[in-house]
Simulated assay, not measured.
Amino acid sequence: MSTASDRPDGSDRPEIVLVRGDITEQDADVIVNAANSSLLGGGGVDGAIHRKGGPAILDACRTLRAGHYGRGLPTGEAVATTAGNLAAQWVVHTVGPVHSAQEDRSEQLASCYRESLRVADALGAETVAFPAISTGIYGWPMDDGARIAVETVRASHPSSVREVRFVLYDAAAYAEFEAAL
C-alpha cells in the first residue's frame, strides 16, 4: 500500500504515509473531503466522496447548513459527518483556499490540515486519509501544496491520530509529496 513514510523517533506525531490511489477506496477512520463552502457536493474529490458515500453524507451536510453553518463552512475550518457507504467512520469536510498570486493564503491551507486533525482527534480517530487539498480546481501548485501539507502534519501533535495518509491520485502528485517528505 505505501512506499514512503515518515515516523519521527520518540514523537507523538502521526506517521505519514503516501498512497497512490482513490481516496474513496481508503479504509481509514476519517476520510478528509476537500469540500466547497456549501458542503453540498461538487466536483473533484468532493463529488467523488458524495457519490460513493451516498445520500447519508449529503443529508448530514444539509443538517449542518440548516444549523451552525447556514452561510457555509468558512475556508480553513473543518467539520465532521457520517461517512455513509465509505469504508470509514467519518468524513471531515474542510474548505481549502483558492490559490492567488497576489495574496498569500498559505496559512488558510495549513489551517485545513490542522483543523481536520483537530476534529479527527476529537472523534478519537487513529487513521486519517487526506487528499492534496486545493491542488485541483482551486489551482494551488502541487509542490507548494505538498510542502504545506507535510510541514503542517509534522508540526501537529494530535493525541489519537497515529497515521496520516496522503492519498494522491496520480504519479505527479505522489512524486511532489514524496519530495516534500
Rank of each mutant, 00 (worst) to 15 (best):
12 D>M: 10
5 S>N: 15
101 A>Y: 10
13 R>Q: 10
60 A>D: 15
71 R>E: 13
121 D>G: 11
97 P>H: 03
113 Y>H: 11
122 A>K: 15
148 I>C: 05
63 T>L: 15
38 S>Y: 02
177 F>S: 00
27 D>A: 15
128 V>E: 06
118 R>V: 11
136 G>F: 00
124 G>N: 05
181 L>E: 03
129 A>T: 10
86 L>N: 02
43 G>D: 02
27 D>N: 15
4 A>N: 11
175 A>R: 09
138 Y>C: 08
4 A>T: 14
9 D>M: 09
16 I>A: 04
99 H>E: 11
106 S>G: 07
109 L>P: 08
162 R>Y: 09
164 V>W: 00
105 R>V: 14
140 W>L: 05
54 G>T: 03
124 G>H: 06
121 D>W: 12
113 Y>T: 12
47 G>H: 00
55 P>R: 13
53 G>T: 05
16 I>Y: 06
149 A>K: 00
172 A>K: 11
41 G>A: 01
168 L>M: 09
107 E>F: 08
71 R>W: 05
58 L>F: 14
109 L>R: 05
148 I>P: 00
2 S>R: 15
22 D>S: 06
115 E>I: 02
161 V>N: 12
108 Q>Y: 09
60 A>I: 02
172 A>N: 11
22 D>Y: 06
166 F>P: 00
55 P>F: 11
35 A>N: 02
156 S>R: 00
40 L>F: 07
7 R>I: 11
42 G>W: 04
25 E>F: 09
104 D>I: 05
22 D>V: 03
95 V>I: 02
159 S>Q: 14
176 E>T: 09
123 L>W: 10
120 A>G: 09
164 V>H: 04
58 L>W: 13
102 Q>R: 13
35 A>V: 03
101 A>H: 10
76 G>Q: 02
98 V>D: 03
71 R>L: 07
75 T>M: 04
103 E>N: 11
101 A>Q: 13
50 H>G: 07
175 A>Q: 15
68 H>F: 05
125 A>V: 07
54 G>S: 01
84 G>Q: 03
64 L>M: 02
54 G>I: 06
168 L>I: 12
41 G>D: 06
119 V>T: 09
81 T>V: 09
170 D>E: 12
